[in-house]
Design a protein around this nucleic acid. Sequence first.
DNA 1: GTCTATAGTGCGATAGAC
DNA 2: GTCTATCGCACTATAGAC
Lengths: 190, 190
Amino acid sequence: MTRADATAMPERPVLTTPQARIVAAALELFATKGVGGTSLQMIADSIGVTKAALFYQFRTKDEIVLAAAEDELSRLEAVLDTAEGAGSRTRQRQVLLNGMVDLSVDRRRTVNVILSDPVILGVFADHHRYHLVLDRLTDLLMGPGVGQHRHMQTAMFMAALSGAVMHPMLSDVDDETLRSELLRLARRFR
Amino acid sequence: MTRADATAMPERPVLTTPQARIVAAALELFATKGVGGTSLQMIADSIGVTKAALFYQFRTKDEIVLAAAEDELSRLEAVLDTAEGAGSRTRQRQVLLNGMVDLSVDRRRTVNVILSDPVILGVFADHHRYHLVLDRLTDLLMGPGVGQHRHMQTAMFMAALSGAVMHPMLSDVDDETLRSELLRLARRFR
DNA sequence: GTCTATAGTGCGATAGAC
DNA sequence: GTCTATCGCACTATAGAC
């Protein structure tokens, strides 16, 4: 997805709206300093505006955190949508694995935020869309059914992917190696 | 390890020194609020002392963070020591897998801190003992050798374990189920 | 839509009594 | 070894000019 587009795009307009720029900057900082360790001043500085400009777009820091969390969640939802639209069950699962690996590699610095930051986990605790995504993910990965082991495998799979791409031991592994090796290992989860 | 001792121990004296009590309280808070989201006031309150008492034991917050990170790292080192002392390579690997699963379940709320909190990762970035542990872990898990895929599998394994035990989707899975299921899945990593 | 200026709060850290 | 009291600073959030 990302690789194919790279050659077609002439420039990079991206992130036109103020909100989108703020959310993108926030996510990057959340990933490197944690949500609790990120101040509004840091976010404002990183996009060259003042704190007051942030408060014009969002009423509180919590709103920025929520928007950032949902932004990252949306990418996972998009992968799910595509996968569920594929043909056979086998094909759906294949598309999902590929999509999740691509997503993890593309958003290497930020995926782990929505999976492990305590503040984000708090935001998602009673978040309907989040739990819906987890259920859809489990159904596609493990097949419909019940039982704790299904959820355990889903959790381990997500954690393994996002934990690997951001692990300090692997910071000098290039994206292509990461992608192919991740895919190889991902196929063992069933 | 923990289960066997539970019946033998009559009471729970544990954590006698002030430093140990502070570190334990800090780790618990780091896990639920993140390092950046945890203030010295919170740590002090949770053990019933004032901030000034904290500064008598540690000179800065950073020193508390370092001590907490090394405390959790020590537990992993202990598992490695035991595993390396076992007989054959196969037996060593078996002991390591069991030890890591037990450790993950026993320290369910806190293991993930040293693996994913950005502040702790910063502390460990140039930390000699930390990198030594990762190397020993990779050698035992994957066998001696070179190549990025060895480190990738180690990273995925650690992330999968710690990510699973703390995943909100699995908060109502009891420790025994977690342990047996984790062991079953862990054996696939090679 | 972004700015300067500022209110009010809580932070990390220190001094000195007990 | 822990306390009370306090310093200076950075934080979230608001008011009002442009």
